[in-house]
Design a protein around this nucleic acid. Sequence first.
DNA 1: GTAAAATATGACCGATCGTTCTATTTTGAT
DNA 2: ATCAAAATAGAACGATCGGTCATATTTTAC
Lengths: 188, 188
Amino acid sequence: MRKGQKTRRDIVDGALDMAGQVGLEHVTLGVLATELDLSKSGLFAHFESKEALQVAVLEEAVDRFKVRVIGPALRAARGEPRFRALFEAYLEWMTVGGGDGRGFDAEAERRTGGCIFMALSQEYDDRPGKVRDAVVQSQREWRSFVAGAARMGVAEGHFRADLDVEQVAFEFVGIGMTCQQTRKLLDD
Amino acid sequence: MRKGQKTRRDIVDGALDMAGQVGLEHVTLGVLATELDLSKSGLFAHFESKEALQVAVLEEAVDRFKVRVIGPALRAARGEPRFRALFEAYLEWMTVGGGDGRGFDAEAERRTGGCIFMALSQEYDDRPGKVRDAVVQSQREWRSFVAGAARMGVAEGHFRADLDVEQVAFEFVGIGMTCQQTRKLLDD
DNA sequence: GTAAAATATGACCGATCGTTCTATTTTGAT
DNA sequence: ATCAAAATAGAACGATCGGTCATATTTTAC
């Protein structure tokens, strides 16, 4: 009852890693199994379908994002400090990427490098299904969290009272996206 | 000698349309052939490999971008007017997308909707090959064009003299990216 | 230690992938 | 109308896809 959970976690971790390189839709059960020294059917037994695995991968990514970005921000004082912490943690996530946090593997960091959500947004914006639904929800929550952090800054008197917090969230993610493209694609 | 060129163009158009929905890497020769009422081998005969087709698709996208975005900007007066025209044409491209310009098909517009380059950037940022190389080049050229337009604005005295034109280009594409994500994924 | 339950295997399914080959049809110039 | 060239079709290839199933192995609880 315990071994299975461990294997399942390994599978999801491996799939997330692979998704960062070739896209979630291109993660293949056979290749993934080989990479993990598992049989294809042994791997598949942990999920009811490939889509279920994809959703599990997305959930894992969300968990990591919470640990790496949301957590540090919440540990900072409300208002401007928290907003700054959020921005920095986000940029770190965008550029360095979300490793699994279980031991730091520089090679894995480079591969996983970059925000998986950006890739997923593009990959699924025209591909209906459970994965897309989950991606949409995660992005909604993220933007609303950023807006909330900005709103606190206003409430604390750190930011202008007439600040459009939605607009702030909008530009916040825009900067992140460009950052990633600049770094990963243009290597700058 | 003439019919072949027409067919080839149809194939590339169809592939570009399909790439907007499922990603360029997921464009499949069989499905594409069926969609165009061609045999798979008849289609394939126009390209030496699938990769060659992909590169042709990217080139077509670049052509359309030039017609739809670069062209209108060049028709405006140097400096701020051109920069504004560029921004507007870019946002239009980002949201409405780049139809083939040969007759306006609202349905196709919606499907093709959104900037194909954003999707390609994500799809190929970790996938070495000729397609990635072409994507990188197109993005480099685009950013440098934006920076150039901003630089003219400075030269004409329309913008502050100490304006960091590279930074402007950086934020320019960031806004575009967020715009697209907001519209296509979050439907807002 | 052993039986039951959980986990992994290997063989196999039909479908589709990109690609190659050899016909066959269509085209355009004479 | 003829005929070579150009364009398309059809069948087949090995590989791989997601998925199933009966079986074997390992883990866990008693």
